[in-house]
Amino acid sequence: MKESILSVKNLTVKIGKGRIVDDLSFDVEKGDVLAIIGPNGAGKTTLFKALLGIIPYEGEAKWRPGIKIGYVPQRMEIETDIPLTVFEFLKLRESKNFSKERAVEELKKVSLPEGILKAGLGEISVGQRQRILIAWALLGDPDVLLFDEPTADIDVHGQESIYQLLYHLQDKFELTIILISHDLSIVYKYAEKVLCLNHKQICFGLPDEAMKPEQINKLYASERGFYHHNHDEHNHDEHHH
């Protein structure tokens, strides 16, 4: 029996009169890679915010006591000319035993060169910034990493290597990873568990078992009419695997 890290029961998030997240129940165990998938606006980021305790919710979301959570947000609302260097950004966190050496060490884990420390946080590419955000989270020696995939601005190749990186981190440092993804092929490749979310919980379990064509159709049903192209892509993915 693996150690439980997070137990969610009947979690509901209401904003105004709408239920953005409706009655979710799932568990995450130590070392899991849980992928949360669903169409745009399905409540994925909202679920993360509830899990982090940033927004109020009903029901239960119990983390193992004393657990350290690292959070990698989808994006940062910063200007490209923000006067804040990467090194300063990492230093702001005021993590224990922070030093330049430690910063360089974390950069290595996310495959970034030391030279990037001097660069401005707003100048570097979106992909690089995302790695910096992961390094920032790693400075806190987290047990769990919550990773919110950016919806745009990163090329497919860059995104693939980010997942390889996460997978590698999970393996090497026994991290538990909960990630939001839009890419079904990523889920098949890297996730151990999958949660399909479209406000309600459409599926939860092992990717191969939980994600039957029927669930996928249901999950993206609302998008189909508007994003025909996307729908074709999903079909393509299904055939592919």
Partner: peptide, 8 residues
Amino acid sequence: VSQEMAHS
């Protein structure tokens, strides 16, 4: 720079 990260 990020309220969510601050909260985390």
